[in-house]
Amino acid sequence: MTRGTGSLETILGLVFVVMLGATALSVYQFMAGQPPATASTELLRTYHRLFERLRADCREAATARVTQDALVLTGPRGLHLTYLLRDGALTRQSGADPAQTLLTGLHSGGFVHTDHEPKLVSIWLIPADSFAPPFFTSFALRGGPW
C-alpha cells in the first residue's frame, strides 16, 4: 500500500482548525462590520419616523386643509391634527395635546393640497444642510368614504 507523509488524524485536525477559523472569522466580520451611524443615517431614521407618522395620520384623515406653513388633517369624527412648519422645525399637534417636534434644521418646506386632487396631500422639506437629502412624497387621505 502507498504511504503518504501525513496521517489521517492530522488532516482531519487540519479540517477542524480551518472550519473553526472560518467560523471565528465570520463572527468577527459580523460583530465588527456594522458601519458607524453618521449624521446622514440619523437623518434617514428621522425621515422614516416622520414618514410612518404622516402615513398613519393620513390613513385616518378624511379631509385636509393647507395654509402657507400648516397642514390641518380632519378625521371622520372631527378630530384635528396640525403639522406646522415654523423656525426651521416641523411640529405635530393633536387636539389639546402639546406640540411635538418631529424634525429640526430645515431650510424650507411646504404642503401641497389641490382641489383637483382633494384626497392627496404632498409634503416637501429641504434641510439646512445642503448635502442632506430632501424629503418629498405624498399621502392619500383614506379616512371617510372611499
Binding site: L44, E117, P118, K119, L120, S122, F136, T137, S138, L141
Partner: peptide, 25 residues
C-alpha cells in the same frame, strides 16, 4: 439604505398614492 434609495422609495410612494387619489376621484 442609501440616501438615493430612500428618496426613490419616497418618490415611488408618491406615485402610488397619487394613483389611489385619482382612482378615488
Amino acid at each position: 439604505e442609501s440616501e438615493m434609495e430612500f428618496t426613490a422609495t419616497l418618490l415611488a410612494h408618491h406615485v402610488l398614492e397619487k394613483i389611489l387619489a385619482r382612482q378615488h376621484a
